[in-house]
Amino acid sequence: MVEQQRAILSPETLIEEFNKNGVTHVVTIPDSETNYLYELMKEQPSLEIVPASREGETFAIALGLIIGGKKPVCLIQNTGMLESGDSIRGMALDSGFPLVMVVGYRGWNRHGVITDSVARYTEPFLNAMRVNYYLVEQDADASRISLAFEEASKTKRPVAILVGDEYHGFNRV
């Protein structure tokens, strides 16, 4: 039980990585599973939250912010990422700017059979879009978040962070 508690990805870790990498805006669709992260982001003076109505918007809003000299991340769930295909293509991949997208990996499970179809399509989708990704499941993986920012900056392309602990670490009770 103790080991299980230690193996979570805490919202504080994500915030720390955002701050370390100079993130100015989080363009997001809030959801109940990530409520604690949302509340924590709201408390950060360095972060402005931009709530979107649909995930495809987040990549276009992010492009506008980047053009204006800001450093946004898109924080969405994998279901919404699937909806965002044309926006990722036209507003992120084709723009030639770095962008980190933090994607809740709904349905991901290291153990047993994955039953949620969205988890089965998540990585094939990213591979089809030629978007590289880093799986982050616990605090010990935090350095991979900075790696994603570095890669995005170097390649001037979107890079995804798949948050594989979506249903445990973000909704502190």
């Binding site: 495809g56 276009a60 809003i61 912010l65 053009i67 204006g68 800001k70």
Partner: peptide, 13 residues
């Protein structure tokens, strides 16, 4: 999505 991008620009400037 141009509308969304325009919003992002307005927020950044």
């Amino acid at each position: 999505q141009t509308t969304s991008a325009a919003l992002g620009l307005a927020l950044s400037l």
